[in-house]
Design a protein around this nucleic acid. Structure first.
Lengths: 149, 149
DNA sequence: CCTGAAACTCCGTGATT
DNA sequence: AATCACGGAGTTTCAGG
């Protein structure tokens, strides 16, 4: 998959605002809307584009606490069933299987510290196969962006 | 800010696909396009909506390695200047100031393990005030979603 | 908070270079 | 891989219930 300068302009424009009309990108770039349309179709087909998503301001709906939880597993634990249980916890927004100290590493969002405690104690800690967890609460997020093209 | 069932339907639809036409949401919900348009304006004004973004498939552009890096700071380190330096590293996509073992916790994307090593050694480790770092490489990501409304 | 209608803008496609 | 042309859709605004 080759990406030229025009493709990059299209991508940067839609990464910034996914609802930008194709025609306004066309005017900016200096080629026709139909051409932008064709390129976008190709980019979508190539799987370079994962989708277009509205981003919700989590704190505006009361989710003010972001945390990372390192999860140590018991030797007999089965990863796939752990993941299945994690998916059932709506507060869990990311889950990774990692090298290093932990086995599973998750990002969770909560309304407040009490809500965080509830999820840790009554949800994550209760999953069969979880032995020990370690929690890092984000006091402030300073960077949040995508990889730059 | 009150969110009713119609607002939720609008939000869910645009979280899934930010380019969904307002009119098609209108047909789904059963009210006029103008009404959806008005509600969306209000949601945008209320700051509940953080934006609409194209999501790039990072691995399709060669960024196949995701890692989390816990950064220990020297007692004299100044957070704001550390953050400033981190922002200059394009591979750093998230940065948090956290409780727990670390002081700063970042998510970084790399093309491969060698590229990861380069960024750790020649970029992050070189920042003035950084004492020790600990890296967790994601071998697999199983969950990636937004908080559910 | 909704609607319908008008004016405007955009989308998607087919024919063409 | 770009262009033009065009009919169908979508967006935005506004007067009105």
């Amino acid at each position: 998959m080759k990406i030229d300068g025009i493709d990059k302009k299209i991508i940067r424009s839609l990464v910034k605002d996914a609802r930008t009309p194709i025609l306004s990108i066309a005017r900016e770039v200096g080629i026709s809307g139909a051409a932008i349309h064709q390129r976008l179709r190709k980019l979508e087909k190539s799987k370079l584009i994962d989708g277009y998503h509205m981003k919700i301001n989590q704190s505006s709906i009361g989710y003010t606490t972001t945390s990372f939880v390192g999860i140590h597993l018991e030797p007999t634990a089965v990863l796939s069933s752990i993941i299945k249980r994690l998916k059932e916890i709506p507060e869990v927004v990311e889950s990774h299987y990692t090298t290093g100290n932990y086995s599973v590493f998750v990002k969770i969002l909560n309304k407040n510290n009490q809500d965080l405690m509830r999820v840790l104690e009554t949800k994550i800690q209760q999953i069969n196969g979880v032995s020990k967890i370690e929690t890092f609460v984000s006091l402030q997020q300073q960077i949040d962006r995508q990889i730059h093209i």
